[in-house]
């Protein structure tokens, strides 16, 4: 059985969790087994996990899951996996998923691969593909243990409906007492899709000259229902919040559309965005290295071009 740990936010299943379930479903199909989901806490839409391939949702809503404590969560997930005799455990490669993978794998005596971008190859053995060396290469990793743990990089596969709503069934677990205390959770923009899950991202660099000029970036993001991001010097200068910083030292993303505005395309920046499906680069310097990685390029003054692009998209939508 393939067991998928489902992350929630504000009482709902996260988009990254739907992807993880769908990934679990495709993996289970290959292995000739079923895909089931594990929910810690509550989600009003948990039955809909069936649409993406879960045949059953196991739920434990202990209050210990109200805050994220790595030890509490990993112990519960490992315990559920043992109890349900899961041979594969799937996580989202989110900040919590990344925190959990090592702990869970250790507790299950399992080999693990994080940030998988494809369904495992199961013809002989079980091998998983991921990006390495700042996305300059891909690697196929064989997991040699009976139980396997895999985390799935956001936006790595297009989910589709393969089933119907399913039952949510309680699962008894010995839940640990939290060892840490979460004092506060500060979410800056709760109405915006978080960067790792965003399908469209509009990103600004030093070419914008200052934080006061970000209006044009935000307007473009608005018409595209996109999330905003930035290059490192921009967040270092506090023009934009730190969680918007993408790249090698920031976060790695994989949206369908990445629009880079006034960003030169340094290798450390590309490391975090190069896997985007379609890249648009707007830069006044025709020699900017970013154009080499772009699908569409516009050479010119961003202050002129960006408002025009926003207007053109508004027109298209009208």
């Amino acid at each position: 059985m393939v067991l998928v740990f489902v992350e929630t936010e504000n009482g709902k299943v996260r988009k990254a969790a739907l992807e993880a379930v769908y990934y679990g479903y495709l993996t289970a199909q290959k292995l000739g087994t079923s895909c089931q989901a594990l929910l810690l806490g509550n989600a009003e839409d948990a039955t809909s996990l069936g649409l993406y391939g879960a045949t059953l949702v196991h739920q434990n809503d202990s209050i210990s899951f109200n805050f994220f404590d790595n030890q509490v969560y990993s112990a519960a997930i490992a315990q559920a996996a043992k109890k349900l005799e899961a041979s594969v455990v799937i996580l989202s490669h989110s900040s919590n998923g990344k925190s959990l993978i090592g702990n869970i794998a250790y507790l299950l005596d399992a080999g693990s691969v994080s940030a998988a971008i494809d369904i495992p190859e199961t013809d002989k053995g079980f091998s998983v593909r991921k990006g390495v060396y700042s996305s300059k290469a891909l690697v196929n990793i064989e997991i040699n243990t009976p139980v396997k743990v895999v985390s799935v990089l956001g936006n790595s596969l297009q989910i589709s409906v393969v089933g119907a709503n399913v039952e949510v069934q309680p699962i008894a677990l010995d839940v640990l007492q939290p060892g840490i205390k979460v004092l506060s959770v500060d979410k800056l923009q709760s109405n915006v899709t978080p960067l790792p899950e965003a399908e469209r991202v509009v990103s600004g660099g030093r070419g914008l000259k200052g934080p006061e000029n970000w209006g044009i970036v935000e307007e473009l993001a608005d018409v595209l229902h996109a999330t905003t991001a930035c290059s490192r010097p921009v967040s270092d200068a506090d023009w934009r919040p730190h969680h918007e910083h993408v790249g090698q030292t920031g976060i790695a993303i994989r949206p369908n559309l990445y629009i880079a505005i006034g960003i030169s395309g340094a290798i450390q920046h590309l490391a975090g965005v190069n896997n985007s499906k379609t890249i648009v680069v707007i830069n006044k310097d025709p020699e900017a290295p970013f154009f080499k990685s772009a699908n569409y390029g516009v050479v010119g003054d961003l202050f002129d071009i960006v408002p025009k692009l926003t207007a053109a998209i508004k027109n298209l939508n009208a």
Binding site: F68, I180, L183, D186, K187
Partner: peptide, 13 residues
């Protein structure tokens, strides 16, 4: 601790 769209403040021994 950094997480999607924000931070979490934690006390630990």
């Amino acid at each position: 601790r950094d997480m999607e769209g924000g931070t979490e403040t934690i006390q630990v021994n």
